[in-house]
Write a protein that binds this DNA or RNA. Structure first.
Lengths: 320, 320
DNA sequence: CTGAAAGCGCTTACAG
DNA sequence: CTGAAAGCGCTTACAG
């Protein structure tokens, strides 16, 4: 900028005015400055500009893993909204590790991001308190965080309820639920939806048909259930990775409804009936909420729940 | 920092020393400063720090689309390497649009990223020249860019050659190739590999068995081929999306080798034989090359080609 | 319409 | 071991 000013024979401030399209510059002067800018290939240093103003026009995104399609959909949606608001996105994968989540968030805060979209890996977010005081905005997505802040979730209970009810309508009475570790919010919620669905249909819950735990154990758990005297005739899986584990399983496959849609679900035979979530909606809504806060919205903390959608494809319509 | 200095009764510079773990500070003074830092909840502003030094410890990543598993794998690998080097990643999706690619790259440059990993959407990168002069490093990944710079590619020719040769070994003589638009580098390269494979086996190329074009047209193109008097008995697809298009196709399915691996390829029946690329390796290698440049490496421009791997699963071993 | 000064939050280079 | 001054590249607040 100094060089441009010198080349155009004006003061720094005048260059700044031209660069920022500020009114009240003599057209001739402006043209001279513009020429110098082009000749020297000058491009304003956004970091310096931002240091002076308050904002960095950058937000941070912490997800579990970019390489997981569910999260990469979220990622793309957040990116889109951010770009539309003139912001860039720093992103990082927590790998479901609360410490890594915390480290990423604090690193982003050190770069003075304006706001954060966080898919919480941990449940304690006290470490965020000083940052929130300092003015960063934060929105939790997919799972609630450990403090009062805007949050966008899927309707996990409703989705699981819909899934199990669908199987009941197709004549099933013994329906297994294979879920992830119940310490994970979404896993616990989906289990609740499953149980409520059974209860609403007047069916008694049978805990021997429920297996919550690491994804790797899901296949074996189902195999065990299938060798009992009263095996399940249908399964509701608690997330996409568990659905895949079941699909990889050998042997007889009961009727199946999977929580979370996935590519090629329609190509398998039978095609897989799923309760689809809306990851793009999750990311978009979270980012929009964030930018609303950044532009000054000061209403009460919001908690939005996005609906799920049952997609019948065959595996969930098999008779007992 | 000023507040901390005042609170600890020292000069700014001393706080800076403590924050940076510089040697030669009286332990008692350091402790006093440390206490003030904690009491005030001080965190250094990395942007300001960076303004003074030369680097931003940030790199830019431009891919086609984060929501595509191939690119999200690249993304994760780049992220990992960057974090290991103390850098953060700004990323954006070009949507295969050269203008958007350019805009993203220049936006990143305005933020003064230290370097860029680019999956080129366009073939003209002259717009990068002034930035390179200004000191940003750039590495092209997956496809070569329009100027001399470090580049990491997959062995597209070799991979397609391996795929078609595999089908030939299993008795096929009429093998179709369904590829993407040949203006896309990888598509053209794979077509070359296919042709070379046929030639090496002494088979004559039959252009009626080749269809290059938009992914949406691939299914119809294959259907047409299958209704001719001498239909192909096998297909090599040019990328993952085309493989899926073929899998979605109704009717008789010839033997199939797909370029690029995908989730659930092993669950389909028959399971799908693929030529697997190494997207994580692509991202890792590109990022490592970038950081090598950033730490001063000044050797000649590198061009690295990553090997592919044939994974036989069933669909590619079907007899004619 | 234009500019000189001060400052954003930090570090570098120097002096004591 | 500690600090006062200058500067990174820009903008804000003011004066002319």
């Amino acid at each position: 900028m100094k060089d441009v000013a010198a080349a155009a024979g004006v003061a720094l401030k005048t260059v700044s005015r031209v660069v920022n399209d500020e009114a009240g510059v003599n057209p001739a002067t402006a043209a001279r400055v513009q020429a110098a800018i082009e000749r020297l290939g000058y491009r304003r240093n956004e970091s310096a500009r931002v240091l002076r103003g308050g904002r960095t026009a950058t937000i941070g995104l912490v997800i579990e893993d970019v390489a997981d399609p569910f999260y990469s959909e979220i990622s793309r949606a957040v990116e889109d909204v951010a770009l539309r608001h003139g912001s860039l996105v720093l992103s990082g994968s927590s790998r479901e590790d609360p410490l890594r989540e915390r480290e990423l968030v604090l690193t982003f805060c050190d770069r003075r991001v304006d706001g954060l979209v966080i898919v919480p890996a941990g449940s304690d977010h006290d470490y965020l308190l000083p940052e929130l005081d300092a003015g960063v905005a934060a929105v939790f997505a997919d799972r609630p965080g450990g403090l009062e802040a805007d949050t966008v979730l899927c309707d996990n209970v409703g989705g699981a309820h819909t899934g199990v009810t669908h199987l009941i309508r197709h004549g099933h009475r013994r329906i297994a639920f294979l879920g992830d570790d119940p310490s994970i919010f979404t896993a616990a919620e989906r289990l609740r939806g499953y149980r409520r669905g059974l209860a609403d249909a007047g069916l008694s819950a049978d805990d021997s048909l429920v297996a919550m735990g690491p994804v790797e154990a899901a296949g074996a758990a189902l195999d065990r259930m299938l060798t009992t005297p009263e095996p399940p005739t249908a399964v509701l899986t608690g997330n996409g990775r568990i659905t895949v584990a079941v699909l990889r399983g050998t042997g007889h496959r009961p009727a199946l409804v999977g929580f979370d849609d996935f590519e090629l679900a329609d190509v398998l035979s039978p095609a897989v009936t799923v309760v689809a979530q809306d990851p793009a909606g999750l990311g978009r809504t979270a980012a929009e909420l964030l930018f609303r806060r950044l532009s000054g919205a000061s209403g009460p903390v919001e908690r939005i729940e996005l609906p799920t959608r049952l997609i019948p494809r065959g595996s969930g319509e098999l008779p007992p």
